[in-house]
Simulated scan of single mutants.
Amino acid sequence: MRYAQSLVLDGVSFQLKEHHDFKWLNDFGEVFCVFDRQDSGNISFGVQKGNVKRFIKYAGAQTINYAGDLKEAIKKLKNAKDVYKELEHPYLVKLVDHLELREGFVLVFEWFDGLNIQKNVELNSACQRFKKLPLELRLQSLSTIFEFHVHVEKNNYVAIDFYDGSILYDFKQNITKICDVDLYQVKPFYNQVGRLWGSSRFMSPEEFTIASEIDGRSNVFNMGAMAFALVGGALDRSYDTWEAGRELYQVAKKAVEKNRNNRYASVIDFYTEWKFYVEEYGTDPPQKV
Protein backbone atom coordinates (compact mmCIF):
# COMPACT_ATOMS: atom_id res chain seq x y z
CA MET A 1 0.00 0.00 0.00
CA ARG A 2 1.30 3.43 -0.94
CA TYR A 3 0.74 6.32 1.41
CA ALA A 4 -0.04 9.83 0.24
CA GLN A 5 2.92 12.15 -0.12
CA SER A 6 2.51 15.90 0.13
CA LEU A 7 4.18 18.08 -2.48
CA VAL A 8 4.33 21.86 -2.77
CA LEU A 9 4.68 23.93 -5.95
CA ASP A 10 4.85 27.73 -5.68
CA GLY A 11 3.23 27.54 -2.27
CA VAL A 12 0.36 25.32 -3.42
CA SER A 13 0.23 21.92 -1.71
CA PHE A 14 -1.21 18.71 -3.14
CA GLN A 15 -0.88 14.96 -2.73
CA LEU A 16 0.34 12.01 -4.81
CA LYS A 17 1.00 8.35 -4.05
CA GLU A 18 4.70 8.96 -4.61
CA HIS A 19 7.07 11.83 -5.34
CA HIS A 20 7.21 13.16 -8.90
CA ASP A 21 9.42 15.75 -10.59
CA PHE A 22 7.44 18.71 -11.94
CA LYS A 23 10.37 20.98 -12.86
CA TRP A 24 9.04 21.13 -16.42
CA LEU A 25 6.10 23.19 -15.13
CA ASN A 26 8.44 26.13 -14.54
CA ASP A 27 8.38 26.91 -18.26
CA PHE A 28 4.65 27.62 -18.06
CA GLY A 29 4.82 30.02 -15.13
CA GLU A 30 3.73 29.98 -11.51
CA VAL A 31 1.29 27.39 -10.19
CA PHE A 32 -1.76 28.95 -8.53
CA CYS A 33 -4.00 25.89 -8.13
CA VAL A 34 -3.82 22.10 -8.37
CA PHE A 35 -6.53 19.52 -9.10
CA ASP A 36 -5.16 16.28 -7.66
CA ARG A 37 -8.27 14.22 -6.80
CA GLN A 38 -9.50 13.04 -10.20
CA ASP A 39 -9.87 9.31 -10.75
CA SER A 40 -8.77 9.55 -14.40
CA GLY A 41 -5.06 9.22 -13.68
CA ASN A 42 -4.48 12.87 -14.59
CA ILE A 43 -3.38 15.73 -12.39
CA SER A 44 -4.08 19.30 -13.50
CA PHE A 45 -2.59 22.69 -12.72
CA GLY A 46 -3.59 26.31 -13.11
CA VAL A 47 -0.47 28.29 -14.04
CA GLN A 48 0.23 31.93 -14.83
CA LYS A 49 3.06 33.62 -16.70
CA GLY A 50 2.71 37.37 -16.91
CA ASN A 51 -0.92 38.03 -17.81
CA VAL A 52 -1.41 34.64 -19.44
CA LYS A 53 -3.08 31.80 -17.58
CA ARG A 54 -3.07 28.19 -18.72
CA PHE A 55 -4.72 24.95 -17.61
CA ILE A 56 -2.22 22.07 -17.68
CA LYS A 57 -3.41 18.46 -17.73
CA TYR A 58 -0.74 15.83 -17.09
CA ALA A 59 -0.63 12.02 -17.06
CA GLY A 60 2.46 10.34 -15.66
CA ALA A 61 2.23 10.84 -11.89
CA GLN A 62 0.75 8.38 -9.41
CA THR A 63 -2.38 10.28 -8.38
CA ILE A 64 -4.29 9.54 -5.18
CA ASN A 65 -7.58 8.33 -6.64
CA TYR A 66 -6.37 6.45 -9.71
CA ALA A 67 -6.23 2.66 -9.40
CA GLY A 68 -5.39 1.85 -13.01
CA ASP A 69 -2.25 1.41 -15.06
CA LEU A 70 -0.23 4.60 -15.40
CA LYS A 71 0.71 3.70 -18.97
CA GLU A 72 -2.98 3.48 -19.82
CA ALA A 73 -3.61 6.95 -18.37
CA ILE A 74 -0.79 8.35 -20.51
CA LYS A 75 -2.15 6.60 -23.60
CA LYS A 76 -5.65 8.02 -23.04
CA LEU A 77 -4.33 11.56 -22.66
CA LYS A 78 -2.30 11.19 -25.86
CA ASN A 79 -5.42 10.04 -27.67
CA ALA A 80 -7.35 12.97 -26.21
CA LYS A 81 -5.08 15.39 -28.06
CA ASP A 82 -6.64 14.43 -31.39
CA VAL A 83 -10.16 14.53 -29.95
CA TYR A 84 -9.76 18.16 -28.85
CA LYS A 85 -8.31 19.10 -32.22
CA GLU A 86 -11.06 17.42 -34.23
CA LEU A 87 -13.88 18.71 -32.02
CA GLU A 88 -12.54 22.26 -31.71
CA HIS A 89 -15.47 24.60 -31.11
CA PRO A 90 -16.17 27.94 -29.39
CA TYR A 91 -18.01 26.07 -26.62
CA LEU A 92 -15.12 23.68 -25.93
CA VAL A 93 -12.08 24.68 -23.88
CA LYS A 94 -9.29 25.41 -26.35
CA LEU A 95 -6.26 23.16 -26.61
CA VAL A 96 -3.21 25.29 -27.43
CA ASP A 97 -0.26 22.91 -27.08
CA HIS A 98 0.90 19.45 -26.07
CA LEU A 99 4.16 18.08 -24.77
CA GLU A 100 5.64 14.60 -24.56
CA LEU A 101 7.96 14.08 -21.60
CA ARG A 102 10.16 11.20 -20.55
CA GLU A 103 7.73 10.22 -17.78
CA GLY A 104 4.40 11.43 -19.12
CA PHE A 105 2.28 13.53 -21.44
CA VAL A 106 0.92 17.09 -21.19
CA LEU A 107 -2.04 18.93 -22.70
CA VAL A 108 -2.06 22.73 -22.45
CA PHE A 109 -5.34 24.64 -22.60
CA GLU A 110 -6.40 28.25 -22.51
CA TRP A 111 -7.59 29.09 -19.01
CA PHE A 112 -11.35 29.61 -18.72
CA ASP A 113 -12.43 31.47 -15.63
CA GLY A 114 -15.41 29.26 -14.80
CA LEU A 115 -16.45 26.94 -12.00
CA ASN A 116 -17.25 23.26 -12.35
CA ILE A 117 -20.98 22.75 -11.71
CA GLN A 118 -20.74 19.09 -10.76
CA LYS A 119 -23.34 18.17 -8.14
CA ASN A 120 -22.01 18.80 -4.66
CA VAL A 121 -23.57 18.48 -1.22
CA GLU A 122 -22.04 21.78 -0.11
CA LEU A 123 -24.70 24.48 0.12
CA ASN A 124 -22.43 27.10 -1.45
CA SER A 125 -21.16 24.90 -4.26
CA ALA A 126 -21.17 26.05 -7.88
CA CYS A 127 -23.94 23.53 -8.52
CA GLN A 128 -26.18 25.17 -5.93
CA ARG A 129 -25.37 28.62 -7.31
CA PHE A 130 -26.16 27.48 -10.82
CA LYS A 131 -29.54 26.00 -9.83
CA LYS A 132 -30.48 29.40 -8.34
CA LEU A 133 -29.86 31.23 -11.63
CA PRO A 134 -32.90 32.48 -13.57
CA LEU A 135 -34.44 29.89 -15.87
CA GLU A 136 -33.42 31.92 -18.92
CA LEU A 137 -29.72 31.60 -18.09
CA ARG A 138 -29.97 27.88 -17.40
CA LEU A 139 -31.78 27.32 -20.71
CA GLN A 140 -29.01 29.28 -22.45
CA SER A 141 -26.47 27.00 -20.79
CA LEU A 142 -28.34 23.93 -22.00
CA SER A 143 -28.42 25.35 -25.53
CA THR A 144 -24.62 25.67 -25.39
CA ILE A 145 -24.33 22.04 -24.29
CA PHE A 146 -26.77 20.77 -26.92
CA GLU A 147 -25.25 22.81 -29.76
CA PHE A 148 -21.80 21.49 -28.95
CA HIS A 149 -23.06 17.91 -29.04
CA VAL A 150 -24.76 18.52 -32.38
CA HIS A 151 -21.27 19.51 -33.51
CA VAL A 152 -19.89 16.30 -31.97
CA GLU A 153 -22.46 14.25 -33.85
CA LYS A 154 -21.79 16.01 -37.16
CA ASN A 155 -18.10 15.19 -36.75
CA ASN A 156 -18.87 11.48 -36.40
CA TYR A 157 -18.11 11.27 -32.69
CA VAL A 158 -20.09 10.08 -29.68
CA ALA A 159 -19.84 11.52 -26.18
CA ILE A 160 -18.42 9.19 -23.53
CA ASP A 161 -18.09 10.19 -19.86
CA PHE A 162 -20.17 13.34 -20.30
CA TYR A 163 -21.70 14.57 -17.03
CA ASP A 164 -22.11 17.75 -14.99
CA GLY A 165 -18.41 17.59 -14.10
CA SER A 166 -17.75 18.28 -17.80
CA ILE A 167 -19.31 21.74 -17.55
CA LEU A 168 -17.71 25.02 -16.51
CA TYR A 169 -19.78 28.14 -15.86
CA ASP A 170 -18.53 31.71 -15.62
CA PHE A 171 -20.95 33.38 -13.20
CA LYS A 172 -19.68 36.88 -14.03
CA GLN A 173 -20.20 36.68 -17.79
CA ASN A 174 -22.79 33.88 -17.83
CA ILE A 175 -20.78 31.76 -20.24
CA THR A 176 -20.78 27.96 -20.41
CA LYS A 177 -17.92 25.80 -21.68
CA ILE A 178 -17.40 22.05 -22.05
CA CYS A 179 -14.13 21.02 -20.43
CA ASP A 180 -13.62 17.27 -20.59
CA VAL A 181 -14.03 15.33 -23.83
CA ASP A 182 -10.98 13.10 -23.38
CA LEU A 183 -12.91 9.85 -23.86
CA TYR A 184 -15.21 10.87 -26.73
CA GLN A 185 -14.99 8.25 -29.47
CA VAL A 186 -15.21 8.04 -33.25
CA LYS A 187 -18.29 6.18 -34.49
CA PRO A 188 -19.04 3.36 -34.66
CA PHE A 189 -18.23 2.67 -31.02
CA TYR A 190 -19.26 -0.43 -29.07
CA ASN A 191 -19.26 -1.01 -25.33
CA GLN A 192 -16.51 -3.56 -24.71
CA VAL A 193 -16.22 -3.23 -20.92
CA GLY A 194 -19.74 -3.45 -19.47
CA ARG A 195 -20.03 -0.33 -17.32
CA LEU A 196 -18.45 2.48 -19.29
CA TRP A 197 -16.71 5.47 -17.73
CA GLY A 198 -18.93 8.23 -16.40
CA SER A 199 -21.51 9.24 -13.83
CA SER A 200 -24.44 6.83 -13.68
CA ARG A 201 -26.77 9.83 -13.28
CA PHE A 202 -26.25 10.65 -16.96
CA MET A 203 -25.61 7.27 -18.55
CA SER A 204 -27.95 5.44 -20.90
CA PRO A 205 -28.78 1.74 -20.27
CA GLU A 206 -26.53 0.69 -23.15
CA GLU A 207 -23.55 2.30 -21.39
CA PHE A 208 -23.89 -0.50 -18.83
CA THR A 209 -24.38 -3.29 -21.38
CA ILE A 210 -21.46 -5.03 -23.03
CA ALA A 211 -21.47 -5.21 -26.85
CA SER A 212 -24.07 -2.42 -27.11
CA GLU A 213 -23.50 0.28 -29.70
CA ILE A 214 -23.08 3.76 -28.24
CA ASP A 215 -24.52 6.16 -30.78
CA GLY A 216 -26.73 9.19 -31.30
CA ARG A 217 -29.61 7.70 -29.31
CA SER A 218 -27.22 7.11 -26.41
CA ASN A 219 -26.14 10.74 -26.51
CA VAL A 220 -29.77 11.84 -26.71
CA PHE A 221 -30.21 10.12 -23.33
CA ASN A 222 -27.17 12.04 -22.00
CA MET A 223 -28.68 15.35 -23.18
CA GLY A 224 -32.07 14.59 -21.64
CA ALA A 225 -30.45 13.60 -18.34
CA MET A 226 -28.55 16.89 -18.38
CA ALA A 227 -31.78 18.82 -18.96
CA PHE A 228 -33.29 17.18 -15.88
CA ALA A 229 -30.14 17.96 -13.90
CA LEU A 230 -30.17 21.68 -14.74
CA VAL A 231 -33.88 22.59 -14.91
CA GLY A 232 -35.53 19.63 -13.20
CA GLY A 233 -35.13 17.23 -10.33
CA ALA A 234 -32.09 15.33 -11.64
CA LEU A 235 -32.92 11.64 -11.10
CA ASP A 236 -36.42 12.61 -10.00
CA ARG A 237 -37.74 13.05 -13.53
CA SER A 238 -41.31 13.80 -12.54
CA TYR A 239 -43.12 16.85 -13.89
CA ASP A 240 -43.49 18.18 -10.33
CA THR A 241 -39.75 18.99 -10.19
CA TRP A 242 -39.57 20.43 -13.72
CA GLU A 243 -39.26 24.21 -14.19
CA ALA A 244 -39.46 24.76 -17.95
CA GLY A 245 -43.02 23.96 -19.07
CA ARG A 246 -44.79 20.83 -20.26
CA GLU A 247 -43.58 20.90 -23.87
CA LEU A 248 -39.90 20.92 -22.94
CA TYR A 249 -40.64 18.35 -20.26
CA GLN A 250 -42.05 16.00 -22.88
CA VAL A 251 -38.95 16.49 -25.05
CA ALA A 252 -36.61 15.73 -22.15
CA LYS A 253 -38.75 12.78 -21.03
CA LYS A 254 -38.65 11.22 -24.49
CA ALA A 255 -34.88 11.66 -24.55
CA VAL A 256 -34.39 9.53 -21.41
CA GLU A 257 -36.61 6.61 -22.41
CA LYS A 258 -35.00 3.35 -21.28
CA ASN A 259 -35.99 1.77 -24.58
CA ARG A 260 -33.56 3.40 -27.00
CA ASN A 261 -35.99 2.97 -29.91
CA ASN A 262 -38.42 5.33 -28.17
CA ARG A 263 -35.87 8.15 -27.99
CA TYR A 264 -35.01 10.70 -30.65
CA ALA A 265 -32.84 9.13 -33.32
CA SER A 266 -30.13 11.77 -33.04
CA VAL A 267 -28.97 14.73 -31.00
CA ILE A 268 -29.88 16.93 -33.97
CA ASP A 269 -33.48 15.69 -33.89
CA PHE A 270 -33.64 16.17 -30.13
CA TYR A 271 -32.21 19.69 -30.22
CA THR A 272 -34.38 20.74 -33.16
CA GLU A 273 -37.55 19.98 -31.19
CA TRP A 274 -36.12 21.40 -27.95
CA LYS A 275 -35.16 24.65 -29.68
CA PHE A 276 -38.60 24.95 -31.31
CA TYR A 277 -40.33 25.11 -27.93
CA VAL A 278 -37.68 27.34 -26.36
CA GLU A 279 -38.14 29.83 -29.21
CA GLU A 280 -41.93 29.56 -29.07
CA TYR A 281 -42.25 30.15 -25.33
CA GLY A 282 -38.93 31.77 -24.44
CA THR A 283 -38.48 31.82 -20.69
CA ASP A 284 -42.20 32.07 -20.04
CA PRO A 285 -43.38 28.50 -20.52
CA PRO A 286 -47.08 27.67 -20.04
CA GLN A 287 -48.06 27.32 -16.41
CA LYS A 288 -48.32 23.85 -14.94
CA VAL A 289 -51.81 22.43 -14.88
Results as ranks from 00 to 15, higher is better:
Tyr239Ala: 09
Asp236Thr: 08
Asp284His: 06
Glu257Pro: 00
Lys288Ala: 13
Gly232Arg: 06
Lys288Gln: 09
Phe276Trp: 10
Tyr281Pro: 00
Phe270Ser: 06
Gly233Ser: 11
Ala234Tyr: 13
Glu273His: 05
Gln250His: 12
Ala244Met: 09
Lys258Arg: 10
Asp240Cys: 05
Tyr271Leu: 02
Arg263Asp: 04
Gly232Leu: 07
Tyr281Val: 00
Tyr271Gly: 01
Gly245Lys: 06
Ser266Leu: 08
Thr283Glu: 09
Glu279Ala: 07
Tyr271Glu: 03
Trp274Ala: 08
Tyr239Gly: 03
Ala234Leu: 12
Glu280Ser: 08
Trp274Ile: 05
Val251Asn: 01
Ala244His: 10
Val267His: 09
Lys254Gly: 06
Gly282Asn: 04
Glu257Val: 01
Gln250Leu: 15
Glu279Gln: 12
Lys254Trp: 04
Arg260Ile: 05
Thr272Asp: 08
Ile268Phe: 05
Ile268His: 03
Trp274Asp: 04
Val278Cys: 02
Asn261Val: 03
Asp269Asn: 15
Trp274Phe: 15
Asn261Tyr: 07
Val267Thr: 13
Ile268Thr: 14
Asp269Gly: 05
Asp236Pro: 11
Thr241Ile: 00
Val231Lys: 02
Val267Gly: 09
Asp236Arg: 03
Ala234Met: 11
Pro285His: 01
Ala244Glu: 11
Ser266Arg: 09
Leu248Gln: 07
Asn262Ser: 08
Asp240Met: 13
Phe276Thr: 14
Leu248Ile: 08
Glu257Ile: 01
Lys253Cys: 05
Lys254Tyr: 04
Tyr281Gly: 02
Glu273Phe: 02
Thr241Tyr: 03
Val267Gln: 10
Gln287His: 04
Val256Trp: 00
Tyr281Lys: 04
Val256Asn: 04
Thr272Lys: 14
Arg260Glu: 10
Thr283Met: 02
Val256Ala: 02
Phe270Asp: 10
Pro285Asp: 00
Lys275Arg: 15
Tyr277Ala: 01
Ala234Arg: 12
Arg237Thr: 15
Gly233Arg: 06
Leu248Thr: 03
Gly245His: 07
Glu280Cys: 03
Thr272Arg: 13
Glu280Asn: 04
Glu243Leu: 15
Glu280Arg: 12
Asp240Lys: 15
Lys275His: 13
Gly233Phe: 07
Gly282Phe: 10
Ala244Thr: 07
Pro285Gly: 02
Tyr249Gln: 03
Lys275Met: 13
Gln287Pro: 00
Phe270Gly: 10
Arg263Tyr: 08
Asp240Asn: 13
Trp274Lys: 06
Trp242Asp: 12
Ile268Tyr: 05
Asn259Met: 04
Lys258Val: 12
Asn259Val: 13
Ala255Cys: 08
Phe276Met: 14
Ala234Pro: 00
Tyr249Glu: 04
Thr272Phe: 11
Phe276Arg: 14
Ala255Glu: 04
Lys254Glu: 12
Asp284Gly: 01
Asp236Gly: 07
Leu248Pro: 03
Phe276Ser: 06
Lys253Gln: 13
Ala255Trp: 07
Trp242Gln: 12
Arg237Cys: 14
Asp269Met: 09
Tyr271Ile: 02
Glu247Thr: 07
Ala252Val: 06
